[in-house]
Design a protein around this nucleic acid. Structure first.
Length: 483
DNA sequence: GATGTCTGCCCC
DNA sequence: ATTCTGC
DNA sequence: GCAGAATGGGCAGACATC
């Protein structure tokens, strides 16, 4: 209607995306405003969604693979083959173009890992019982779960050609779990050639920061400071990394994805010379749930995040597929890695987006009572309620509706005086501190925004505690005990 | 130059 | 990351 | 069980503003 083609809209969005530097935000706003005003109502809605990355069409990459199969064959019979191709080149756009240009058979002919091109990483399912794990998986390998960052390491002795052709050639490329290249982050991998036997290899690993003084692994919050653009070498010195290698996906032209796990481990061990930076992780073969349980308990006691369990003869499968790789974090039978759940009071809520728009509530803010020791100046901090987490998961659709209804009876116009809340967490709607919820979490961390001074990592609702009121809520000193 | 706010095919 | 839900 | 879509804490960077 408005004469703008899809291509034109695409080109204008691309232009807007590329603005940078001083005044760029202003420019982006005005250019997007101009574009939106040229569109009809319906087009404007979807262009806005494109910009926000919230198209909400109800399908994603995997559904496109189904569609490609149907387009070429009239049914979903090619999906398996497409999945395999997608694993070694996880780019639905590229795949669609190749299939339509060459046809299914030619496009899917060469299914080999290409060193330098990221492979879709294997992910873990969750299961919280050693018995269930052995039942589903049979013989397994039990390994420590490191709380670091996933790194897929590609090595080619002859070097990768740089995109800017004149630069020096690097022997190493690395990728995140989301297939983002982050080679610049790891100067310590420049010596990889000394530690690898062979000319080409692709490894899977978890990188963890190491405390220079104690030699112990650092918490995730410290490790992740290595994800940066500036000051890379300085930070690399202050927070050196150890890469715990647990898999090898290709070596010297041989794709290993469908080799059984124990076989890949054998190749892995043969490929790595002993060194301080690349460490092949421990693995323990077992078929016994009691023994598996013991390993899990031991890893937790040693301070690891938990255990990763892998089917002994399983292939390297992309994503969470079947019962191939499984993680256990919390103790068996408990919810959340924290030793206890917390009873917290609802302070306010936020309107939801997408599916949750209809509920009128997408997340809510919870807090604890600040219990100053009585010896202190009695007035200060008395009766204050401070924030410790925002909760947006763990509720069924019915519970969302139910909570909204309850909170509506408690709405107050202004934030209650006893609340202490950071600007970044200002709720859309404030409520009196009457509703108490039981919350599970994995960890208590030092927080820059939550006024309790600490926050919950991976918080989720367990249930409503109608039997409790504000006076029964977990106190700040009790929180410190749990952590 | 210091501080505040927001974003990220972010990391978990 | 965790969790819920439609298919 | 898969695939998708809701949502969490918190880091460095980029840009705006004081």
């Amino acid at each position: 209607d408005n004469g703008l083609s899809v291509k034109e809209v695409y080109e204008r969005l691309l232009l807007i995306a590329k603005y940078a530097g001083e005044g760029s935000q202003e420019k982006k706003v005005s250019e997007l405003a101009k574009l939106l005003s040229e569109l009809d109502q319906l087009s404007a809605k979807f262009v806005a969604r494109i910009v926000l990355g919230r198209l909400r069409l109800g399908f994603s990459d995997k559904t496109i693979l189904d569609a490609l199969s149907v387009a070429e064959r009239g049914d979903k019979s090619a999906r398996k083959k497409l999945d395999e191709a997608y694993q070694i080149r996880p780019d639905a756009g590229h795949l669609a173009a190749a299939v339509l240009a060459k046809g299914l058979d030619k496009a899917l002919a060469n299914l080999e890992v290409e060193v330098g091109v990221p492979v879709m990483p294997a992910l873990c399912q969750r299961l919280n019982s050693a018995v269930a794990i052995i039942e589903k998986m049979g013989t397994v390998a039990a390994e420590q779960k490191f709380d670091g960052t996933r790194v897929q390491i590609h090595f080619r002795r002859s070097g990768f050609r740089n995109q800017n052709s004149d630069g020096p050639t690097n022997q190493v490329r690395t990728f995140t779990r989301n297939l983002e290249e982050n080679s610049q982050m790891f100067p310590e991998l420049s010596r990889l050639g000394e530690w690898v036997k062979g000319d080409e290899a692709v490894f899977d690993s978890e990188a963890v920061g190491i405390d220079i003084k104690t030699g112990k692994t650092l918490p995730f919050q410290v490790t992740i400071t290595r994800k940066r653009k500036h000051g890379v070498t300085e930070t690399a010195k202050a927070v050196p990394l150890q890469f715990y290698l647990f898999d090898i996906l290709a070596k010297d032209g041989r794709t290993l994805l469908s080799e059984p796990y124990f076989e890949r481990r054998k190749v892995l061990v043969e490929t790595i010379k002993e060194n301080k930076t690349l460490v092949v992780d421990e693995t323990h073969r077992t078929t016994d749930p009691v023994e598996l349980h013991k390993w899990h308990e031991e890893f937790l006691a040693e301070g690891f995040e938990g255990a990763v369990i892998k089917k002994w003869d399983g292939p390297y499968l992309p994503g969470r597929q079947g019962w191939n790789w499984v993680k256990i974090k919390e103790k068996e039978g408990s919810t959340g890695k924290l030793s206890d759940t917390l009873d917290l009071v609802v302070m306010g809520y936020y309107r939801g987006r997408g599916k949750r728009t209809g509920f009128g509530l997408g997340a809510f803010l919870v807090g604890v009572a600040q219990d100053d020791p009585p010896s202190h100046k009695a007035t200060e901090g008395q009766g204050k309620v401070v924030t410790i987490a925002k909760i947006g998961t763990g509720l069924s659709d019915d519970q969302f509706r139910d909570l909204k209804k309850r909170l509506d009876d408690l709405v107050v116009r202004e934030m209650p005086k006893e609340y202490e809340v950071d600007k970044a967490l200002i709720a859309d709607v404030w409520v009196e501190p009457k509703v108490v919820v039981e919350i599970a979490a994995d960890e208590i961390t030092k927080s820059p925004v939550h006024t309790a001074g600490v926050a919950l990592r991976f918080p989720r609702l367990i249930k409503f505690r109608d039997d409790k009121n504000l006076s029964g809520v977990t106190t700040l000193s009790e929180v410190e005990e749990i952590s």
